[in-house]
């Protein structure tokens, strides 16, 4: 067997299958989604091939009985809830994850490896199953309520399920490893002598954390925040199972439009909005990465 002689031909041959697959089944569908968002809905599912910006108008306004556009805050509220809950989840992951990422770097290598394994493991297990297990915990008469009732502290239900709080817990739980791992990666590179030097120069523990550890972990913190924020924004499972379909987020709203409401253009428009938000988040990260590279380039 012989490989093509020219390196360019070999590159093309190697890359083409993967790139074409992604282009046809990923990029092209995204473009179709963009086109769909500017078409009219077919009430039986799918689209009518007529240009319309109605899907985008529908995000902000509804048409009342007199055919007049009336401001409708429902969808804006859902977008806001998505952003808000994604932010809460991001901050929650950061607060929960940062001390742990730091703690891991202070362990010996064997222990570090074990802890990283334990953190990665849940991430690769089925997300549906993991979120579902929170139903067992939070549900009426679940793991938390049942013993409280048995002892007689609780009467009735705490109503923990189907709340923003339950969704936030589910989101934090789903994406926590994505916060810990990049922060760990940047803290692990931190030269411990800098901490010694800062203490030597009269900084106490809190000042060392604020002046040295946090700024130097910033690339990892930003990467972790983006990695948690982006999937939280489009999350479907956590709001669907723990929000009970009552507290909608962007992900569940999109699903609703394609599944039961059968308004594909509207669903497409929301998906496009979601992608825009994701792009903004990624641009923020790209800029911070570029800044960091520029700083390191002086070396």
């Amino acid at each position: 067997m012989n490989l093509p002689r020219s390196i360019a031909a070999r590159r093309a041959l190697g890359l083409a299958p993967a790139l074409i697959t992604v282009a046809i089944f990923m990029v092209l569908p995204m473009l179709i989604l963009l086109v769909f968002s500017f078409l009219e809905a077919d009430p039986y599912g799918g689209v009518e091939p007529r240009f319309s910006v109605e899907a985008y108008i529908q995000l902000l306004y509804e048409i009342d009985f007199d055919d007049a556009l009336v401001f409708n805050p429902i969808y804006l509220g859902i977008i806001w809830r998505s952003i808000f809950l994604a932010l809460v989840a991001t901050v929650g992951c950061l607060i929960l994850g940062f001390p742990v990422a730091y703690f891991i770097t202070r362990q010996d290598p064997r222990m570090q490896n074990l802890m990283l394994y334990l953190i990665t493991l849940p991430f690769w297990t089925n997300q549906l199953v993991r979120v579902y297990s929170w139903i067992l915990i939070l549900a009426k008469d679940g793991v938390i309520e049942q013993p409280l009732k048995a002892v007689g502290i609780l009467d009735g239900s705490l109503g923990m399920m189907y709340s923003n709080g339950a969704i936030a817990i589910g989101l934090v739980y789903s994406y926590l490893p994505l916060m810990v791992l990049p922060i760990y990666a940047s803290l692990e590179k931190l030269d411990f002598r800098l901490i010694e030097a800062a203490h030597d120069l009269y900084a106490d523990r809190m000042k060392v954390m604020r002046e040295i550890i946090t700024p130097l972990a910033m690339p990892g913190i930003i990467a972790g925040c983006i990695l948690v924020f982006v999937p939280s924004l489009g999350a479907f499972i956590a709001p669907d199972l723990l929000g009970g379909g009552k507290k909608l987020m962007l992900g569940s709203l999109i699903h609703l439009q394609f599944a039961s409401s059968r308004n594909w253009p509207f669903g497409s428009a929301i998906a496009i909005c979601l992608l825009m938000l994701v792009m903004v988040a990624l641009m923020v990260q790209a800029r911070s990465a570029a800044k960091r590279r520029a700083m390191e380039a002086g070396r």
């Binding site: 002598r193 800098l194 010694e196 030097a197 030597d200 120069l201 002046e211």
Partner: peptide, 20 residues
């Protein structure tokens, strides 16, 4: 005493300058 309460300063072997 912790290092930040000692009126003593150190010049480190590899300098340990704060890169940021």
């Amino acid at each position: 005493l912790p290092p930040h309460e000692r009126p003593v300063n150190t010049v480190f072997q590899h300098y340990a300058l704060f890169p940021h």
